[in-house]
Nucleic acid binder design. Structure first.
Lengths: 213, 213
DNA sequence: AATCATTGGACAGTGGCGCTATCCAACTAG
DNA sequence: CTAGTTGGATAGCGCCACTGTCCAATGATT
C-alpha cells in the first residue's frame, strides 16, 4: 500500500498522514526506493488508533506519541506494557503540589482509598498519573469553593470500581496478546465519552421520573 | 466591589474579567458613574462557576454563555430551568445523521434504552443533547472499526444510572431554589473529570489485583 | 523517449480559541 | 493637583492540530 492508498483506505488526508509520520505517531513504511514506501494493515490499524485517541479521546499529539511508544515497547512484559500505556495517559493539567487545596485534596483521596480498601492505589499509587489525575480536579473544586467529602465520593468510586471490573472482563476475552495494550488504550480512552453520555441520559431519565416530564 | 477588587477576591485577572463581561458570561455590575460599576457576591459566585466550567469542564465559552442564559432564565420553572441548563450542554462534536455508522449507533442506543426500560429517554429523548451525545461517540467507535454491543453497554448504563441517582440525591439536599440550576450544572460538569479519574484509579487497583504488582 | 503524477521531505501558513496587552478619555481618591 | 482606576475598544499572543506549497527524485503511461 502506498501513502495515497493508505489515505484512501483510512479516510485521513495524505497531508495529515505525513504529519503523523513526522510526529512519529505512525511508524515509517518499508522503504522500496528513495521515493516510495510500502504500508500495510498494521499502519491502517495504528492510524485508526491515533485518530481515535486524538478525535474521540482528545489526547494531545505529544501524549499519543508516549502512549504508542509504551504500546510498542517489546522490552516490557505484556502486563507492564498495558500498564505503561495507561500510565502514559495523564489527562488534564497537574495540580500545584504546594497549594493548600492540593494538600487537602490529597488527604481526601488518602481517606477515600483507605475507606475503600484500595491498598495498591494508596501505597503505590501516589506517584501514578491516575492518582494525580484524581487529586487535580478535586483540588480544583476545593479551590473554587465547591465542597467535596469522602462520603460523597464513596458511591461514585464504588460504581467506577464496578465499571473497571467490566473493562478488564472485556479485555480478558481477547486472545491476541500483541494487540492487548492497544485495546486497553482504546477501552480506557474511547469509552470515556460513552460513559459520560450514558450518565447524561441517565440524569434525564431520572429527572423525568422524579419530577415528571 | 470594584473590578479590581473582584479580580483580587476571585484570583481572575482584570483583563480576563473584562473578557467575560464582553462575552456576556458575567453580567454587568451596577453602574455608579460612567467609569465605575459596583459588583457583589453574585458576581463572585458566577465567576467561580464560569472558571469551573471552562477550566475543569473544558466547556467552550460560547456554550458557557448558553448554559448561563438558561440558568438565569426566570421565565422557566425551576425544573425546566435545571433541564434547560443541562440541555444547553452538548459536549463533543455532532454525528453526521446520514452516515451509516450513525444509523447503526442510533439503533444500538434504541435497543439499549428498550432493554433498560428507560422509556422517557427512548421516546422523548431522540432530540435531546444527551441522546445525541451518546450516539455521536458510539458512531465514531463503529466508524473506526471498534465493535460495540448492547450487552457490553448494559452494565455501564446501569452503573451510570446509579451514579445519576446519587447526583440527584445530592441535589435534593440543597434547600436553595435559586442556586439549584447552578448547582446542577456544577454537579453535571465538574464531577466528570473526578468520575473518569476514579475509573482510572479503579483500573490500576483492579490490574494490581488480577495480575499482581 | 517523453510526458505527467506521485512520493518523501521540509517548512511556512492557517484557523480556532482563551485569553492578554495596549491604548484611551473619563473620572476619582488622597 | 496628581496618580491611579474604570469601561470600552481593538490588536496581538500562544498553543495546537493540521494544511498548503514547493522541491527533486522517481515511477507509470503512452
Amino acid at each position: 500500500m502506498r501513502l495515497s492508498e493508505l489515505s484512501e483506505h483510512s479516510g485521513v488526508s495524505t497531508a495529515t498522514i505525513k504529519y503523523y509520520l513526522r510526529e512519529q505517531l505512525l511508524p515509517q513504511g518499508r522503504r522500496i526506493t528513495a521515493t516510495r514506501s510500502e504500508y500495510d494493515a498494521s499502519h491502517l490499524r495504528r492510524l485508526r488508533l491515533i485518530r481515535a485517541l486524538i478525535q474521540v479521546g482528545k489526547v494531545p499529539v505529544a501524549t499519543v506519541r508516549e502512549v504508542l511508544a509504551a504500546v510498542d515497547d517489546e522490552s516490557l512484559g505484556r502486563t507492564n506494557r498495558l500498564g505503561a500505556a495507561l500510565w502514559a495517559l495523564p489527562r488534564g493539567p497537574e495540580a500545584d503540589p504546594d497549594a493548600p487545596a492540593t494538600q487537602a485534596a490529597g488527604k481526601l483521596v488518602e481517606e477515600l482509598l483507605t475507606e475503600l480498601g484500595w491498598d495498591f492505589a494508596r501505597t503505590n499509587g501516589a506517584l501514578s498519573p491516575a492518582y494525580r489525575s484524581l487529586v487535580a480536579p478535586l483540588a480544583r473544586l476545593l479551590e473554587l469553593g465547591y465542597p467535596v467529602t469522602v462520603a460523597e465520593l464513596l458511591p461514585y468510586a464504588r460504581q467506577m470500581a464496578s465499571v473497571a471490573g467490566h473493562d478488564f472482563d472485556a479485555l480478558e476475552k481477547l486472545p491476541d496478546d500483541a494487540e492487548r495494550a492497544e485495546t486497553a488504550v482504546s477501552a480506557a480512552i474511547l469509552r470515556e465519552p460513552v460513559l459520560l453520555a450514558l450518565r447524561r441520559v441517565a440524569q434525564e431519565e431520572e429527572s423525568a421520573r422524579r419530577y415528571g416530564v
